[in-house]
Each structure stands twice: as C-alpha cells, then as structure tokens.
Amino acid sequence: MSILNRLPRLARFSSVLHRENVSRFSTKTEEPAIPVNLLKDTYSANLQTKNGAIYDKKPFKIRLEAGKNYSWCLCGQSKSQPLCDGTHKNIFLKIQLRPIRFNVPETKEYWLCNCKQTSNRPFCDGTHKRPEIQEKVKR
C-alpha cells in the first residue's frame, strides 16, 4: 500500500502541487485588454469618417498618465507624432480632419496608431499590417 493512500491529506497536497506545475508550463498567454478611448462619446471629432495621411507604417509606444487628456493627430501632418501639435489649424494647408481627444484609465505604456487607419482611434489595432497599408508610400 502506498504512503499516499495512508495519508489522504498528503495525497491532496501532492495533487495541488502537481496542478500548479502543469499550469506554470502552459503555452497559453494572457493577451492584454484592448484599450478604448474613454472620451469617445464626449467629442464629435471621433465621428469623422475619413482617415489621415499615413505618417508611419508601425505604431508608436508611449507612456500615458491616467486622467490626463491627450490629442492624437488624425491628419498625419503633426511634427510631434503621434500627438497633435496644431498643424491642422494652418489655414493654408486646408486640413479638415481634427485631432482625437482621449484619456486612459491607468498610467502605463500604450501603442498609438501612426498609420492613421485604425478603427480603434487612437490605439493601434494592427491595421498597419494589412498589405494595402504596407504598400502605400508615406508622406
């Protein structure tokens, strides 16, 4: 007769340890939650149907602070990408697109879209990986 059969508490403890070891070596990874614009319903600029000029074909990683308001450049002309610097206000450029105002729920690093084609403005949703985006020449 096994010692584990004689000591049921030890057997339960042994099976718990075994399960923890199995889960620790699991190949599944937890995907981070997709961020959303908390001000999406507040500002009408989010309703713009057009996308701006492609600034870059890869996203930009930036540390954002919770509760602080930001303006993401949608026109693609800002010199301080991915954030707006007011270039769209230049009357000679005749830019009709307006920046997307947003804030984030927690302070951490976020990936902001630089191709300006995302459907989850201002956050990257992987749209830049599409062949038609990669083939376009950035301005």
Rank of each mutant, 00 (worst) to 15 (best):
N37M: 02
A33V: 02
S2N: 12
S80R: 13
S26L: 05
N120M: 03
E65V: 15
V16F: 13
H18C: 12
P59R: 02
G67L: 06
S71Y: 14
K57I: 08
S44W: 08
E30Q: 12
C113L: 08
P105Y: 00
I3Q: 11
Y70C: 04
T87E: 13
L10K: 11
N37H: 01
W72L: 04
P105V: 00
R130T: 08
F92Y: 10
R12S: 13
Y70W: 09
L93I: 05
P8L: 05
L97C: 07
K40V: 12
R98H: 14
S23L: 11
L17Y: 07
F92P: 00
Q96T: 15
N114C: 14
K50F: 06
P131S: 14
H128P: 10
F123H: 02
G67C: 08
N103D: 07
D85Y: 06
V137N: 15
E30P: 03
I95S: 13
S26K: 09
L83N: 05
I3T: 08
K94P: 05
A45V: 03
E30T: 14
S15I: 07
S15V: 09
E132P: 06
H128W: 07
S15Q: 13
K40F: 09
F60N: 03
P35W: 03
A53H: 10
A33C: 01
T42D: 10
C113V: 05
R24Q: 04
I95V: 13
T118L: 03
Y55W: 10
K116F: 08
L93E: 13
Y43D: 15
F25A: 10
V36S: 08
F102E: 02
L64S: 04
N103E: 11
I34F: 01
F25D: 06
Q96P: 00
Q96H: 12
N114Y: 00
I3G: 00
S78C: 06
C113W: 04
K116C: 01
A66E: 11
N37W: 02
P32V: 05
Q134V: 11
C115N: 05
G76W: 07
V137A: 15
E20D: 03
K129V: 01
L74A: 14
T27Q: 12
F92Q: 04
I34K: 08
I3H: 09
D56W: 13
T42C: 02
F92G: 15
C75Q: 13
D56M: 03
F60R: 11
C73F: 11
D85Q: 07
L39T: 03
L7T: 11
Q81R: 10
G126F: 05
L17N: 11
N114H: 03
I133G: 09
Y70K: 04
K57A: 00
N21R: 14
V36C: 02
S15Y: 11
N120P: 06
E65D: 12
L4F: 09
D85W: 05
N103L: 05
R19F: 14
N69Q: 10
F60S: 07
P105N: 06
G52N: 04
I3L: 10
Q77H: 15
Q48R: 04
K108V: 00
H88E: 04
R63S: 13
Y110I: 01
L47W: 02
